[in-house]
């Protein structure tokens, strides 16, 4: 069990280091500020419910700023260790390369967890505030109060944490063989974009007019890219009384876990061969 201890210490150190960075605070403030400000921007909404408009700011903030945080922090922490030679010192001790990389990933993932919790907290506060006001108005007009599911928001938070975990794992895998900081950041963001559009490839692969060769190629490509849109279920979980079935939520979590495990494993595999 000693190896778990080592991983824990590396993760803790990574988390502390990352949480102290101004970049984390900046993104957190930006995301939370944007969600809070959405209350005063509802005049720009056309046709949708106010709560949907506000929630959309929160969902967008969690994913956009969370993704930037996942990519940039992962790459920065990884390359700082390599460039400052602290990785070399650490790996000279009885720490395996795999343990080092896994610890790094866990540290970043914990930080992303804190980010998601805080962002969901702000979003819940803003939604509760506005839903309360709208409920009073609805009551005065004998209308049903607006629906907001805060348990659904908590589930959404967990799903986002897993989604950002996939992004961080993808970044770890890229960083493990990338030679420069810039290359790792750019490739990770491109991978993120492709993963967000994975379902478009899948649709294309299942099209009737597509030739067999193209179908096989795109079909294989979809197996190599996780579908990140799968976790984009905030509206259904938070604002729809029907919610989302438990089987779907569990499947999404299982899907995310498999991808995280595979991507971290690939990162560990490449890191074995890397010259430090």
């Amino acid at each position: 069990m000693f190896f778990l201890k080592k991983i824990f210490w590396i993760a803790r150190n990574t988390f502390t280091e990352a949480a102290r960075q101004k970049f984390f605070s900046f993104l957190l403030l930006l995301g939370a500020g944007l969600t809070a400000v959405s209350l005063s921007l509802t005049h720009f909404d056309f046709g949708d419910s106010e709560l949907k408009f506000i929630a959309d700011f929160g969902f967008g903030g969690i994913f956009l700023f969370g993704s930037v945080l996942a990519v940039v922090t992962t790459v920065q922490l990884f390359f700082t260790e390599i460039e400052n030679r602290t990785a070399l010192t650490m790996l000279a001790k009885p720490v395996r390369r795999g343990e080092f990389l896994f610890g790094k990933f866990l540290g970043v993932w914990c930080l992303l967890g804190v980010f998601v919790v805080l962002m969901c907290g702000v979003l819940a506060a803003v939604l509760a505030l506005r839903a309360g006001t709208l409920a009073e108005i609805a009551e005065a007009r004998s209308l049903p109060p607006p629906f907001v599911d805060f348990v659904g928001l908590a589930i959404f938070g967990v799903l986002q944490w897993v989604r950002l975990g996939i992004v961080a794992a993808m970044t770890i895998a890229v960083s493990s063989f990338a030679q420069t900081y810039l290359y790792a950041v750019v490739v990770s963001f491109v991978a993120l974009i492709i993963a967000q559009l994975q379902y478009v490839f899948a649709d294309f692969a299942s099209g009737e007019k597509v030739s067999f060769g193209v179908k096989a190629l795109t079909g294989t490509a979809t197996k190599l890219i996780p579908n990140l849109q799968l976790f984009n279920t905030g509206e259904a979980l938070v604002l729809d009384p029907a919610g989302l079935s438990a089987a779907t939520i569990m499947s999404a979590l299982g899907y995310g876990t498999i991808w995280i495990a595979a991507l971290v494993f690939v990162g560990m595999w490449f890191f074995r061969f890397r010259e430090i």
Partner: peptide, 30 residues
């Protein structure tokens, strides 16, 4: 080897992903 691991993960997770995506897609309006 890395390719094989990712492909295996994609294949292994596909049933879960497809199941979740069927309901999620209906609800999120892609």
């Amino acid at each position: 080897a890395a390719f094989a691991v990712i492909f295996a993960a994609g294949t292994l997770s596909a049933p879960l992903g497809d199941f979740a995506w069927t309901e999620a897609r209906e609800r999120i309006g892609t």
